[in-house]
Design a protein around this nucleic acid. Structure first.
Lengths: 230, 230
DNA sequence: ACTAGTATACTTGTCTGACGATTTTGCCGA
DNA sequence: TCGGCAAAATCGTCAGACAAGTATACTAGT
């Protein structure tokens, strides 16, 4: 609350900046799924040493934004149906706990409200990335408001992969962003009313919708079972 | 059980072996909380290069088993009351989802049953570390049986910190391990009966007991508010 | 023509050594 | 006694190198 806390932000170190840059490129789909990311390539593109690039890839691997096994090149993963279900199951687990906790105190996080405003503002525009950004910010604010460092840390990992899938096949295109905004509003309202049950139901419905859009898009791309990878 | 399968396991790489060794030393309390772990020390103790030790410390930091900020040496954290509450809140979130999912299918994980047997076997002995090991294995098996890779990943991080606190002030000493075993049995029974509600209640009670023991021990060590760190 | 085995190139794992930056510690002077 | 400055310790990053493993291409045999 003291207005002096001196946020030391801004990627202080080189590794941090590198990590953030590569991370953004992956989640925004600039690096296609299946694409290989060798340490040498990263080192060359950014003019850093290979150990630095290595550390970066290892961090991204730990977050699930890259897959790699020993002595093999890291690749950007393409989540299949099973993994998307797993992702959304985990996501629902974390966010359910968050909204329930918030509803018990009736505390509507201001940051979430702000993210909602940003989302509605970007709804009409063609700025697709901004919509995704606002959506992520909304859910992130929800969890952050609980005040649990560990819950936020878990959620951050989950949201990273969510962001990845949204960036890859841009599922939001297939739906009206205002629908999403309204579902968000419902969640906030239930929280403000101090109704944990309804808040969880609204959230579950919202995530179910999102997962459905993702799976629909996936099936549209791969009409028959699984093939067509490389 | 056939004597030939020759599980090729065991840390394939040097980094892996190093990481596992240091990890064990931390969670077992061999490295006291507050103790400093410099890269050079690790490199010297294990006769590895500093970059290798560095990678090891970074992994442990990411898991919450070490704390460090830029240009400062890593230290083993000592969790205060607030952090223990946060830890157990997160833990309950994950494990609630797990037991509920298991109860819905009525699927009692065999690995959890085995861990229970191991726990009861070690109950009488002075083998405290074995009891902790079995306890961890039980909860780990519960979550693993859900089959969600991401849920297990989150849980692994949480359990790492739980293991850390249990190793530090050995809270189990203050209670009868059979009580813990009985609480575990209650959870398994509720799962077998296909009763998600009761399974969650039993789990919540079990975790509450464990957290209570931890906090009691903490208050006993620090009778007055917070001080006495270094 | 097709399969199998081998050899080469690529990538990663690890090490050695080094330099700059930052934090901490300790000393000295006011 | 206290504040500031210098020295030591530690971390961040880099460069270069070698070993080990994997994947691919090529050759030989059936």
């Amino acid at each position: 609350m003291d207005g002096q806390t001196s946020f030391p932000l801004g990627p202080s170190s080189l590794t941090e900046a590198l990590y953030e840059s590569v991370r953004k490129r992956i989640v925004n789909g600039e690096i296609a799924p299946g694409e290989k990311l060798t340490e040498i390539r990263i080192a060359g593109e950014y003019s850093v040493a290979r150990p630095t690039a290595k550390a970066c890839l290892e961090r991204l691997t730990a977050l699930g934004l890259l897959r790699r096994t020993t002595h093999k090149t890291a690749v950007v993963p393409k989540l299949d149906e099973e993994e998307i279900r797993d992702l959304y199951f985990s996501r629902e687990t974390v966010e359910r706990a968050a909204v329930a906790a918030l509803a018990r105190t009736g505390n509507v996080p201001p940051a979430a409200v702000r993210a909602q405003a940003a989302m509605k503002a970007a709804a009409g525009d063609a700025a697709f990335a901004d919509q995704v950004e606002a959506d992520i910010a909304f859910h992130s604010a929800l969890v952050a408001a609980v005040g649990s460092r560990r819950l936020s840390r878990m959620h951050e990992v989950i949201l990273g992969e969510v962001h990845l899938t949204m960036g890859q096949f841009q599922a939001h295109r297939t739906t009206n962003p205002m629908n999403v905004a309204h579902e968000h509003d419902d969640i906030l309202k239930a929280i403000g009313d101090g109704d944990p049950e309804r808040a969880q139901q609204c959230l579950a419905h919202h995530l179910d919708q999102a997962q459905g859009r993702l799976l629909g898009q996936l099936r549209r791309e791969n009409p028959r079972s699984e093939e067509a990878s490389a």
